[in-house]
């Protein structure tokens, strides 16, 4: 299966889960919002060009915005994590990123601890920006901090579950 085709299928699948499963779950609390769609950007292959990465993330954010009916909100957060992602991978990956070719960030390729750090930092960054923009429109500081912590924990839990269930083993050459 070609890499592009695989990622398109994955994108549709992740968006479907986000919009028609996670968004339909009755909320536990005001602070708990299950965001999952941005994991698509985290799972893009290492050799995605930086320009392409920015454009893809913008598109992903806009599609999410279409369903959440908030033009630009999710796109802005996605573009931010797309910009930071290559720096973070360079820090966490001992080798040159291009050596890995079509591999994508996972527990296997990065190692458990760096992969965990990678997820936590990008998830926090995404939610920080998203909730900051929301906070500028309404809410208090407690709302901002509470939602940031609770939503990040839920997102990380969802990504951990997805990592357990989805078989993302890419063949090592």
């Amino acid at each position: 299966m070609s890499l592009v085709f695989k990622n398109i299928i994955r994108f549709i699948f992740i968006m479907f889960i986000q919009v028609f499963v996670l968004s339909k779950i009755p909320p536990l609390h005001q602070f708990v919002v299950p965001y999952f769609y941005f994991v698509f950007i985290l799972w893009l292959p290492f050799n995605t060009g930086r320009v392409a990465l920015l454009f893809i993330s913008f598109a992903v954010g806009m599609v999410a915005d279409m369903f959440f009916k908030t033009p630009g909100l999710h796109a802005a957060a996605c573009v931010l994590i797309a910009y930071v992602r290559p720096f973070l991978i360079n820090l966490l990956l001992p080798k040159e990123a291009t050596d890995w070719g079509n591999e994508e960030p996972s527990k296997k390729t990065l190692g458990a601890v760096p992969y965990g750090t990678y997820l936590v930092i990008l998830t926090l960054l995404h939610h920080f920006f998203l909730i900051l923009l929301e906070w500028m429109q309404f809410g208090s500081f407690l709302y901002f901090i509470g939602k940031l912590v609770a939503t990040s924990l839920v997102s990380l839990l969802l990504i951990a579950i997805a990592d357990l269930f989805l078989n993302r083993k890419s063949k090592l050459r």
Binding site: R50, V51, L54, G61, G72, A76, V79, Y83, L133, Q137
Partner: peptide
């Protein structure tokens, strides 16, 4: 700084959409 500029352009596009929406 082409990538940083592209980042700023896309970010600006998204934010302008968000703030003009209301």
């Amino acid at each position: 700084y082409s990538i940083f500029i592209l980042f700023l352009v896309l970010q600006g596009l998204a934010l302008s959409m968000l703030f003009s929406y209301n």
